[in-house]
Design a protein around this nucleic acid. Structure first.
Lengths: 224, 224
DNA sequence: CGGCATCCGTGACGATACTG
DNA sequence: CAGTATCGTCACGGATGCCG
């Protein structure tokens, strides 16, 4: 009968405060991790569910609906023959990258403990790595600094890629189509890189990182 | 019998990801807003409860205990005759300021709608204002840029103050003891200032902001 | 009176089963 | 594949009680 069960009046903090307003939209459990997934590119419901171990199907569906209504994400039908739906961040949703970066920087020390129950996905290392690669010296960025091009990162757990250049850096899951540089390293080395404990050049010299590629980007990475 | 009810095994995402680790510690409802309160200085339990309308007493006590165990905050007894306990952020807790800043920047557009149910406190405007004041031109900062000194901000809702200079900026609730500059403005002007829609100098010229003080800091604020 | 602890009703969450 | 339905459990919010 009453079809409007679950009308889900949102639970707001009701504070005239920018931080509280942000948390009204993204403070619910799982929401920022869904954003992290979608920052790696459009995803299907099943893929999201697979890369977010522990989230229940109804909570995932509910969060995606909230995110659509708040215009953080949109649902789009893929052209046939795929005929599947994918979820994709809006501009506003992509604007959450600095929030994830700040959280990742603060949370990085907690990665020194690696628990046997921890799930891992390669692209989870992309967010902490973005500021490092985006800060490389060079003339390619939007403001005339930084490098330009696509870096592919290969870990034992899988691969992801990062596109540097004008505007905010972007990352995607899986290998790149034609990367300008490729990094091969293990998860702990990637963690050390993100934490500033190690530079790419140092990692190359002590054998923990392999860098391939011949362009300017690869040379800068190697520290040449 | 089983007294270890509430032994509060934490609900973790169990992901080897820096962002997820951060959310394990500060992702619970109210936690980041408690951090926002404590960034304004040490607070008693009752003060926290008063400035966080809607939080229940047991949840506040539980969050404070979690934060103590995670070393985000400490509980300290004030010297007599106060004889009260205050909660205070640790260094690790203060490290969350960039997270709050990023959230505030993202959430700021939502402040254009001001709901009649919204609570307001003056110091809630401090976090979004910090990057603005910290980015002023001048030679006083830790890296040789920025201004140095104490700015007092007076709104209709109350006052807070911001200390600029070496290291990260710090803010406190209430008026400053001997401010180098004082800003008098209303909440919406303060919001516009944080959002970059307005500079202090422009606000002074069109009468929305009063700046008092004679030192270098006040002069730079006025745009002289 | 400040600083919680306890109780209780409601809603959010997680696991599983089921359906178009 | 992409969710919805159901259900038990736990977290949350409100009120009240206790104890220094």
């Amino acid at each position: 009968m009453s079809r409007l069960r679950h009308m889900s009046r949102r639970r707001s903090y009701d504070q005239y405060c920018a931080t509280a307003r942000a948390l009204d939209a993204v403070g619910d459990r799982w929401t920022l991790l869904i954003v992290r997934e979608l920052l790696a590119g459009p995803r299907r419901y099943t893929d999201l569910h697979a890369d977010l171990p522990g989230v229940s199907t109804d909570v995932l569906a509910s969060r995606l609906k909230d995110m659509e209504r708040d215009e953080l994400a949109t649902r789009r039908r893929l052209p046939p023959p795929s005929a599947a739906y994918v979820y994709e961040l809006t501009e506003r949703g992509r604007g959450l990258l600095p929030v994830l970066t700040a959280l990742a920087e603060w949370g990085a020390p907690a990665l020194e403990e690696r628990r046997p129950t921890d799930a891992v996905r390669a692209h989870w290392f992309a967010v902490p790595l973005l500021p490092v690669l985006d800060g490389l010296p060079g003339p390619g960025g939007a403001d005339g600094y930084g490098q330009e091009g696509v870096v592919e990162v290969r870990l034992d757990e899988g691969a992801f890629h990062i596109r540097l250049g004008a505007g905010d850096p972007v990352y995607g899951d899986g290998p790149a189509e034609s990367p300008d540089a490729r990094l091969v390293l293990d998860a702990d080395t990637c963690r050390a890189l993100s934490g500033g404990e190690l530079t790419v050049g140092d990692g190359v010299r002590d054998g923990r990182i392999e860098v391939s590629g011949e362009g300017a980007l690869a040379k800068v990475l190697r520290g040449e």
